[in-house]
Design a protein around this nucleic acid. Structure first.
Length: 345
RNA sequence: UGGGGUGUCGUCAAGCGGUAAGACACAGGCCUUUGGAGCCUGCAUUCGGAGGUUCGAAUCCUCCCGCCCCAG
């Protein structure tokens, strides 16, 4: 059981224990040591989680281990996060972390110490059906985290437990007295766990360095000068500093020209996309619903898998489909497919 | 140097004698296990400067200053 000492993972551990599992709590260290001051204590991987998790584990009378996954985290999450911004894309670090760390490195480590299954406090569900194992949305629609979990390999699903998949967070809070978890005394907001102070642009600038370049309107007009492409993301409005007759948004980032293209809301409407780094649960082409960012309703669409890519056409235009972000497709409450957006139009 | 025009928030811009609209930008907040979006709130006691007329001026008059055109 991956334990952070927070309510969700603590309660999940409690549930597993009650269900009769032999539970071993594991807290992984992910953050590089240069981040002394953890900015996001509630984050899934912050430093002072260890003590909190241990206390909960002791309380539940389960063993507790701490494992070090910093090297992998640095390489697969932080470095890639930086590289993606350098290339003018907008990565989703939580998805990288799930793909390469929690449901990869952590899983292997858990096996190596004798575990049979891994469990996390994610709000998602796994079910075995006639066709095989499926990743499904959680009972609590407000907390469903399948969007972040789509990269989990299908053959791994049978080895994963999501104890909270059938729970409703608000109801869980009512029962939280059953465990002695440590309420995070800090703000709820999540942000990026490895970015101190939650200012990811400042963080990126330490590695990428500011390199001024042109702001162009989609019609070709030069509108001003930007401070470096890594400071911007498609769909962004604030922080451009350009007065105009109407709000301007980042429409495109051209890394090769070091240029940022601006336009109005209309210019951000797109219906088609191609994604790579895909994970396909249901290869049958056809109808589905999908979303392009976590907090967004699903839009009906059609998809097909073509080689290593996923092609999606939405029934109606979406706003700012952003390269580097992920598209996740659903059929009913099952995750059908997902991938990293390569381009959209 | 003549002739014409113009000067209102960081930017664009209403107002044309009755006590400073709006948009963009910006700042703060809400929302949120990524980023972005969205929503809420704030944002010129003052109208290039100095005088004057008036109960009352950004709005009228005078002078000065700054821009922008057109002339020689």
């Amino acid at each position: 059981m991956a334990m952070s000492g927070g309510m969700d993972s603590s309660f999940a551990a409690y549930m597993l224990k009650r269900q009769g599992y032999e539970v071993v709590g594991i807290t992984y260290q992910l953050l590089p040591s240069y981040i002394k001051d953890v900015a996001n204590p509630k984050a899934c991987c912050s430093l002072d989680t260890i003590a909190r998790a241990r206390r909960v584990a002791d309380d539940l009378s389960i063993r507790h281990y701490v494992i070090n996954l910093r090297e992998d985290f640095q390489r697969y999450v932080i470095d890639r996060f930086i590289d993606e911004y350098r290339a003018g894309r907008t990565p989703n670090p939580c998805i990288l972390c799930n793909k390469y760390i929690k449901f990869s490195s952590f899983y292997r480590k858990a096996l190596s110490i004798g575990g049979e299954k891994i469990a996390t406090g994610h709000y998602a569900a796994i079910e075995e059906t006639a066709e095989g194992w499926t990743l499904r949305k959680s009972m609590d629609p407000a907390k469903d985290q399948t969007y972040f979990l789509y990269p989990i390999q299908e053959n791994l699903l049978k080895s994963i437990l999501f104890p909270l998949g059938g729970e409703i967070k608000e109801e869980l809070k009512q029962r939280s007295h059953l465990i002695r978890w440590d309420p995070a005394k800090v703000r709820e907001s999540q942000d990026i766990c490895f970015v101190p102070g939650a200012d990811y642009r400042e963080f990126l600038s330490r590695f990428i360095g500011l390199k001024k370049g042109p702001f162009y309107h989609v019609d070709g007009t030069r509108l001003g000068t930007h401070e470096g492409i890594h400071l911007y993301t498609v769909g962004q409005r604030r922080g451009l500093g350009i007065p105009y007759s109407e709000p301007l948004y980042v429409v495109e980032i051209r890394a090769t020209e070091n240029a940022v293209i601006l336009g109005t809301k209309e210019h951000l409407k797109q219906t088609r996309l191609v994604a790579d780094e895909i994970n396909i649960f249901d290869p049958t082409p056809g109808r589905a619903t999908g979303k392009v960012r976590y907090r967004q309703g699903e839009t009906p669409c059609t998809y097909r898998v073509s080689g290593d890519t996923l092609e999606v056409e939405f029934d109606e235009p979406l706003h700012a489909i952003t390269p580097g972000q992920s598209v996740v497709l659903y059929r009913e409450d099952r995750v059908a497919a997902g991938g990293v957006i390569k381009k959209a139009w």
